[in-house]
Design a protein around this nucleic acid. Sequence first.
DNA 1: ATACGGTTCAACCATTTGGTTGACAAATAT
DNA 2: ATATTTGTCAACCAAATGGTTGAACCGTAT
Lengths: 202, 202
Amino acid sequence: MKAKEENTELEILNAAKEVFQEKGMAGSRMQEIADKARINKSMLHYYYRSKQLLFEAVFKNAFRLLAPQLNKVLNDDSELFDKIRNFTNNYISFVIGHPYLPNFVIQELNKNPDFIEKLRVEKDFPRIEKFKAQVEDAITRGIIKPIRAEQLFINIMSLNIFPFIAAPLLQGLINVEEKEYRELMERRKTEVADFIINSIRL
Amino acid sequence: MKAKEENTELEILNAAKEVFQEKGMAGSRMQEIADKARINKSMLHYYYRSKQLLFEAVFKNAFRLLAPQLNKVLNDDSELFDKIRNFTNNYISFVIGHPYLPNFVIQELNKNPDFIEKLRVEKDFPRIEKFKAQVEDAITRGIIKPIRAEQLFINIMSLNIFPFIAAPLLQGLINVEEKEYRELMERRKTEVADFIINSIRL
DNA sequence: ATACGGTTCAACCATTTGGTTGACAAATAT
DNA sequence: ATATTTGTCAACCAAATGGTTGAACCGTAT
């Protein structure tokens, strides 16, 4: 019965992902997850024991998906400007495939900041050292203006992630419909990289 | 009994603010709000009828506090570069006084995007028109490179707001303690403005 | 055929949670 | 002084919610 088992388990994880990522831990109901997975509520506990454990499974999965994205900035071998262009261009496609994911990770990390320590031990946890060296090297070689790698990294993340996290607010403020907002995001694929590079290039 | 009445009502609103902003609508408990306000749970319903209405009171209050901040970018009379510098410098002080507020507004707007329409009718709802004209004027006069006002606005918001919303994640990624992260934020008061202006200045 | 391990579910259970009620106290109006 | 309105609370209530249980089911090894 191996096939069935893995199937149900995955079905649950998938349903849980959708519900948790959209409504957060506190706003999600086990019954809703069960319904979405088309199984009995008991099955959730049979496979994952408790809401907390099911949540953690979903969260870790989400982070494992997000981490490689961040590593494209921190641990990729490409040259600095290419890296910025690539990440910016790639990230939007990633978000379209996983619209709730980045916000989900950020929110639940806000509610439980200690959890980041548990993630850090996992392999592929993004580390800044390499990026830091790269930025410092580019400064020494006179390619970019002096800037702390941490600040540049925060800027890159901010410009790429925030417009999706705050979409409803921003949409309301600049007073555009969803369609036009998506077009704005589409243009950001190249514009954000230019904006960043313009700012730091010597 | 006027004084007592207003007192209790405010006490409740204040306690509700703390709880709702930290835990969100779904994660908050009426009992916890009552405890924090040092009153009986019945009083919450006496003054605000339901959790939903109490929440909406808190939310509208929060937005009324946030709106003037955004208007410093959108509807202030100062010159573009000054405006960017002022906002950036000001915003961090605002966030220190209201650490959970921006994220609270953004999150609840995410869970209920239609709510923005109800806010738009309120006076002082931030509007982009003036800022748009100002940016277009600066482009025409050859002061800044061509850029859509919407994109510039999104960039300003992103660079200022995101580092606080995603603090635990970013702190973990760049691997610094809270204290050092606060110092990074402190430096951003001037650095972010420079970063933006560098990018758009001709 | 039969025993056995994992899988599935309907029915339950205990607790939590938002909300109500009725009695009483404290102001205010008459 | 007395009636009336307003504020406060302990005790309740019904529904929702996370979790448990025991029986049935099903594929497989013996």
